[in-house]
Amino acid sequence: MLSRLAESLFWIGRYVERADDTARIVDSYVHRMVEDPFNDESATCRSLYSILGIAAEVERLRVVDTLQTIVYDIESPNSIAGALNGAYENSRRSRDYISSEMWVALNTTRNELPQRAATARQLGPSTYLQYVRERTSLLAGLTDVTLSHDDGWRFLVLGRNLERIDMTARLLRGRVVSDENAPDWMAFLRASGAMEAFMRHTREINDASGVAAFLMLDRLFPRSVLYSLNLADECLVEIQPASPRISTGDVARQALARARGTLEFIDPRQLIDQLSELLEMLESTCIRVTDAVTDRYFRHEDAVAWNLEEGL
């Protein structure tokens, strides 16, 4: 498939997932930010900024401004609205490939955001976050049932899973960077939609290392890091043109394999102690894989082949 198209699909996958995950993370903070009277407003906002990797520009942070920057601001690629806009822009460029149902879903979502934001500024962010999660779920569903599961779909799923790994790592980092201002472990489970799955898996609900292990290492839960790593690798295996008998040194798969290896063989009891380094490792893995995939599959410009010479 066209390199440019593959790149757009990869980024649709990333942006839609980013919107979904950001909504989930913000949701887990909303209770603390909006409803908890004993909470340090500025510190909580700062914690949110830091896990989303956004630089906070002012000393004293207020919830209203934070929501504007992280949720409603369509200009910022890190905000929810910005991510959905990014997905929309990429879908315009790949409109001949994606299904018309996907296109309509993205187009109407983006058209409706300003209205939803206006309502949310009055009634609180929950309705907006709920809307975003519904729309991103719809998009994920349409992606899986209205696209052929060919290379284009795989690039999209690859992007989705890389983003999911990155965002789950960020979510967990909230506990690592600022313990007291971050939501508790249960809120993380709820944010990941993993509450029921976790409860069915274990009875020890207040066990921090149990939650961390579930979100990092579970083989069956589709939002766990290990699950996403495996899926991302499957996509790359199927995308690569032919499987030679001797590996040709796929940099992206190499990076994924290191991360998988580390997680596969870690002792779950030690996970919580090593969490900080592991999360850092995961974030850099995502960057490395993205770079390698871009380099290998999305290159569209060769060196400029002609010169603009005047007077000739």
């Binding site: 498939m1 066209l2 390199s3 440019r4 593959a6 290379d151 690039f155 060769d302």
Partner: peptide
């Protein structure tokens, strides 16, 4: 396709794909 997806080489035109 857009112009940047295409490349000419010895009078043949190709599109750049992932493959």
């Amino acid at each position: 396709v857009e112009g940047r997806d295409l490349v000419c080489r010895s009078n043949h035109v190709y599109m750049r794909t992932t493959n």
